[in-house]
Amino acid sequence: MEEILNLVSVHREMIYFVALSIFVGIEVIGSVPTVLHTPLMSGANAIHGVVIVGAIYVMLNVDTENILALILGFLAVLLGTLNVVGGFVVTDRMLEMFKKK
C-alpha cells in the first residue's frame, strides 16, 4: 500500500499531466462533424506513431554487442516509421479531397 502511495507521490506531476491530457483529447474531438471522423481517426493513428521516439531512444542506448536487441530495435524503428509516415500520408490523401472546388 505504502509503495503505491509513494509511487503516486513520486509521479504526481506525471499524473497531473496525464489527467489534463485526457481532457485535452476529449475537448479536441468534442464537436467534430461526422464527415471528418475517418480522417481524424487516421490522423490520430499517425500521431500515436510518436512511439517511434521511444524506439529511437532504445536504439541509441542499446549495446552493440547485443545482436538480438539490435534486430528488435531496428524492427521497432521500422514499424514506428511505417506508422508515422503511412499515417500522415494517408490522412493527407483523405483530406486533399475535401478542398473546395
Binding site: S21, H48, V50
Partner: peptide, 12 residues
C-alpha cells in the same frame, strides 16, 4: 512528447 501524443490519441 510520447505522453502527450499517446494520451491525446488514447482519450480522443
Amino acid at each position: 512528447v510520447m505522453l502527450t501524443g499517446g494520451i491525446l490519441v488514447g482519450s480522443a
